[in-house]
């Protein structure tokens, strides 16, 4: 059984117009996409802004209303879940957000931020909770003294690692990472990506890694899906996508990556232009 199976997912947003705000049409954010994710697998979702990749991620987490299709998590349709089984699903899926400034509550200490999911699902004593938070901080390479500080006292990379610690607090099976490194500098990005890979290996996580950066996705995921205008236009292994792209849009995307190509051991500058 797959960990996650998405069948014919559709997310449409209504377009309202006129004096009475009647629904006159709809914007198709995600239009009939299907894919599966096995336990421990990491899949990348790339595409340009507005292609529906974030909406897909949000739909899987139940953060947005879906217009049609099914999302099966361990064989159960999450759109129909209620009560206890829904809370079990919420434990199993967590998210890492792009913007570390708006995704961490500025009025809470790091301890409370990371302990919040634990408080929701596991009733532990304060001492247990503190021990668990220190363990989690250690996993993402932060000092345990950070627990009493506020998010504003940290740099972008450290804040993203706090977000990761919160996401892995409940030992989820799937993490949806929506552009986790696009707001970070190159050296900080490297650090966060390395931690994400280590944690995946340690905890056997599956990632749905959403990004516009094909280089980052190729680095992180064995399988890649390319989204364009609300549809998945191509899916395959990272090697196939990079070296043998089938769809015209994928080819354009690869040609657009500004880059330094490594050829024959030496690094040379590549002057590429878009495929017209």
């Amino acid at each position: 059984m797959s960990l996650l199976e998405v069948r014919n997912l559709r997310v449409f947003y209504p377009v309202r117009s006129g004096v009475f705000g009647r629904i006159t049409g709809c914007t198709k954010a995600v239009d009939d996409i299907s894919f599966t994710l096995e336990p421990g697998q990491s899949v990348g979702l790339v595409g340009e802004s507005g292609s529906g990749k974030s909406t897909t991620g949000r739909a899987i987490l139940g953060l947005t209303h879906i217009s049609g299709g099914q999302i099966l998590f361990e064989g159960e349709d999450i759109t129909r879940l209620a009560g206890r089984s829904r809370s079990a699903y919420r434990r199993g899926v967590q998210m890492i957000f792009q913007d570390t400034y708006s995704s961490l509550n500025p009025r809470k200490r790091v301890l409370d931020i990371i302990a919040e999911p634990l408080r929701n699902f596991e009733r532990g004593t304060p001492a247990e909770e503190r021990r668990r938070v220190h363990e989690l901080l250690d996993t993402v390479g932060l000092d345990s003294s950070c627990a009493c500080k506020y998010p504003r006292e940290f740099s972008g990379g450290q804040r993203q690692r706090i977000g990761i610690a919160r996401a892995i607090a409940l030992r989820p099976k799937l993490i949806v990472a929506d552009e986790p490194v696009s707001a970070l500098d190159l050296s900080v990005q490297a650090q966060v990506l390395n931690y994400m890979q280590d944690i995946r290996r340690e905890l056997g996580l599956a990632y749905l890694f959403i990004s516009h950066d094909l280089n980052v996705v190729t680095h992180m995921c064995e399988n890649i899906m390319v989204m364009h205008r609300a549809r998945i236009v191509e899916a395959g292994s990272r090697h196939d996508i990079r070296h043998n792209p089938g769809h015209a849009y994928t080819r354009e995307l690869i040609a657009s990556i500004p880059g330094i190509n490594v050829t024959g051991g030496a690094i040379c500058a590549k002057h590429s232009c878009t495929a017209h």
Partner: peptide, 20 residues
């Protein structure tokens, strides 16, 4: 360090210790 921190097909990215 900066060039080795870029994902370019290597297994592990180089992390510069510390911060600017």
């Amino acid at each position: 360090s900066l060039l080795s921190a870029m994902p370019r097909g290597q297994d592990r990215l180089y992390v510069i210790p510390g911060a600017v």
